[in-house]
Amino acid sequence: MKHHLLSSADLARDDAVLVLDTAAELLSLADRPIKKLPTLRGRTIVNLFFEDSTRTRISFEAAAKRLSADVINFSAKGSSVSKGESLKDTALTLEAMGADAVVIRHGSSGAPHRLANSGWVRSSVVNAGDGTHEHPTQALLDAFTMRKHLGDLDAKRVTIVGDVLHSRVARSNALLLSTLGAEVTLVAPPTLLPVGVETWPVQTSYDLDTSLDKCDAVMMLRVQAERMDAAFFPSAREYSRRYGLDDRRFKRLPEHAIVMHPGPMNRGMEISADVADSARSVIVEQVSNGVAVRMAVLYLLLSGADLSRTDPTASDSTKPEVVS
């Protein structure tokens, strides 16, 4: 694992599998009487949220707390950030507070990258969603959910439908699922596919119907109705008719296929209420898996050998290593 998690591209296949395997072990924690591990006791994790996202923040907060880390929530709303404080000054403040990890959500693509590589902070940086760029922990929890239902993702077919252009979830999933060996198809109207998508490790299609018959998982992306004002599509009704997962299309899915959505859903737009609530919808489960996956990420990032912070008096090993 690298020191930061900024993009799904930071995860080699072994790294991704390590995160998912670790998360699988950590998921059992939810069934224990004491849902807490001492692993990150004394470490400080800052949730630095420049955009409102209660769901993601709570998920990271629960993950950090279950690992016994101290959590500081720093919301840009109502803070000095809204008074014009720069990302740099905010970062320097966090560094002075001794943050071991910064979980950052930002409306500007690349802001986590900037935080990690500018020399402002030494902490690990976890991208919790940046602009229209990436959201790697969402992709990890999606992959985790798929693995639980479908087994090894090698050669599994995943169809991702909707506003790929503006979706950080789609970017992170396309990269991660390809790394894990899945065959990803992005389905969207041509206006909502990014320029250069042909260089991505995915297939693309403008037609949802032909992409459903053989897929193992279908992921519906949130489509904002405002996009039609920018002429990305003519109307919500037409979008829904051509790219929505309705009952008719749902019936075309193979028996074992699962339905996913990163939330929040526009019921009736990209997904019908019946499909969202069906037995094959794993949308609620995605949320609960998120905590385990984020615990795994925080554990793996923070327990690495960080020599700059090593306390020499704590150099005794629990289980002495054997060198042969």
């Binding site: 072990e25 591990l37 923070l302 050998a305 150099s315 090993s317």
Partner: peptide, 16 residues
Amino acid sequence: MYRDDLRLHPARALEP
């Protein structure tokens, strides 16, 4: 997850 030397070594995979 209960080890006291987690900071000193690269993260390791969990066992069941």
